[in-house]
Design a protein around this nucleic acid. Structure first.
Lengths: 329, 329
DNA sequence: TCAAAAGTGTTATCCTTACACCCATGT
DNA sequence: ACATGGGTGTAAGGATAACACTTTTGA
């Protein structure tokens, strides 16, 4: 090994790219901030290069270019994962003046926004994440998108020598044959689809793969630029897990909210329906929120009381997230 | 922003460093693999540069150089976090021919080993992690190391304008004033010590800081090379959390083990004492292990039955980790 | 008056916690 | 016999899941 600081003619240069998954909840739907790349490429996440000379930390760099690209200022931010595999469609490849042989490492971040406020930038928009993962929404029961996916996965599994292993993975990830649905395995599901050649990105990265029939293409969801859908899947997994042991939902809520709105937000993130009373009882026991006395009359039926998150708790005692009392139907 | 692929004379180059926290359990103690750097530097984690031209993935690169440096082959591996802050002691700075101005990004990994086997390399060794975090071991009640730490933290908090905020953080992290101990907050505790100037690394990175008195120095633990103790803290936090929702302990056990040995391993990792019967009941309910009929006679008292982890479960159904039924004393 | 959504009561069951005691071996 | 660690029974209390019903508004 002979690393040198500047250019080494014999070795490839490294470029670090930062991507942000900015999540909000809008009308009971989880939405994510996307940008339209210049060419005919599919939409992607806000992203930019990390300048090792100028930026003091990743997070500062991220906040700067997200604001620049979307006119939107980030609140809660956390690092997700660093992707460095060769072979995956290189993120940011040929960005800028780019020479062909630079290796791009991509650091993904998750950010939460209290509301999907207007971005004021023409090329950025909020998209429901169901657009990219149609099979992830079980709020109204098992989504129909799973039918063509299940058929395709079984075909894929059975055409291999290790069919049993492939089937076992598919069963666990996609709740086949009566296995329970685990809402957190978003990344596992996406990776399985990719591996099985059922994601448009797979066809793009490995040109030998055939295009998907329309029904299947609709079921597996829209592709994103570069490896951004993989980063999005990582973000959804992380968020669905975290909501249970840290009070992060409140980062997605306005100051005052009704309990039903809170429940709808949790359901939008987790993608599963919750049991109303049990959800409220759990909230009450956790003492995370307090009533404001004020009412919200615009609910359609009986007016609902407004609540607020007791954020002062965060510095007073260890505080866990919300349990997800499932509503089975 | 004007990224270019190769060397740009005006901008700093990026070097990616990989570090591994390799954990094992030895005689009921959690141990971690360290290497001795060439100079008079303190011990560090096995680490090496990532070669963007040669290595296909981070993980492959990591496995290669850990084997090279320690003659030890990794099993379970997962990515922890990517550290990129300027100001922190630069990892790998001036490694190799290094020019002074290269920016180093450090990707930390966690690896688990079934036993602390001999590394056969003269400059690598297993160290109990209590050496680096003496205050993290509550298996025999509140560790004495917390007394000088508590005094120093209170001094640090009270000499600032935002004393209440500092005190609140210290209380939560270090279980002051009757707050409950949370074994997962290892990173938070280390960062607080660093910030308060109570970690030897802080004195090194900010030369204005005074050296610690001996009692305090012993209580806060030994420093490590570069930012490696921070990476170690991240690893311990992650592992202590993960043990509860994934069956990762078994990666640290031999094929056959007694239930007491398993409990001791969990206790070594979590740093808290567990309630025997309740631990076993939880195990039983989870159906994670099965008896082998064979006995281990070398336990000192009545021989114990040997068990094995039913790893075939992993591909059969979603499987969670172990609950930690605390033993209060 | 009826639809729509808010908000509450109650019970069976399961899991967790906490208590203490018996068992098999080596010295 | 006794020390040492292995291994078990049981009951109280709390959390969860499941059942349906009452209340308050707007149309």
């Amino acid at each position: 090994m002979s690393p040198s600081s500047d250019s080494t003619p014999d070795s490839t240069a490294v470029v670090i790219g930062l991507s942000a998954v900015v999540v909000a909840v809008q009308d009971g739907e989880a939405v994510v901030l996307t940008v339209r790349p210049p060419d005919a490429e599919p939409e992607g996440l806000p992203f930019g290069p990390f300048d090792p000379g100028g930026h003091r930390t990743f997070e500062l760099a991220l906040r700067a270019f997200v604001t620049e690209q979307t006119r939107f200022s980030l609140g809660y931010v956390e690092q997700l994962y660093t992707f460095g595999d060769k072979g995956r469609d290189a993120p940011l490849a040929d960005m800028g003046a780019g020479a062909p042989s630079s290796r791009v490492i991509s650091v993904g971040y998750l950010a939460l926004a209290p509301a999907a406020v207007d971005t004021h930038a023409p090329d950025s928009q909020w998209r429901p994440w169901s657009r990219f993962f149609p099979y992830e929404d079980w709020r109204d029961g098992r989504p129909a998108a799973l039918d063509p996916i299940e058929r395709a996965l079984r075909r894929w599994a059975n055409q291999a020598a290790d069919a049993p292993r492939r089937l076992a993975r598919a069963r666990l990830a996609f709740a086949l044959d009566g296995a329970p649905w685990n809402e957190e395995r978003v990344l596992e599901r996406y990776e399985l689809l990719y591996e099985a050649g059922l994601a448009p990105e797979a066809a793009r990265d490995r040109p030998d793969t055939a295009a998907l029939p329309p029904e299947l293409a609709a079921a597996v969801g829209e592709a994103m630029f570069s490896d951004h859908r993989r980063i999005l899947a990582t973000a959804v997994s992380r968020l669905r897990g975290k909501i249970k042991y840290r009070p992060v939902v409140f980062e997605l809520m306005p100051e005052a909210f009704t309990l039903s709105a809170l429940q709808r937000a949790v359901e939008a993130i987790a993608g599963v329906p919750l049991h109303k009373q049990n959800f409220r009882r759990a909230l009450e026991r956790a003492e995370l929120v307090e009533g404001l006395g004020r009412m919200d009359a615009d609910t359609g039926g009986r007016p609902a009381e407004l609540f607020r998150f007791k954020k002062e708790l965060l510095s007073a005692r260890p505080v866990s997230g919300l349990s997800l009392p499932l509503l089975r139907d």
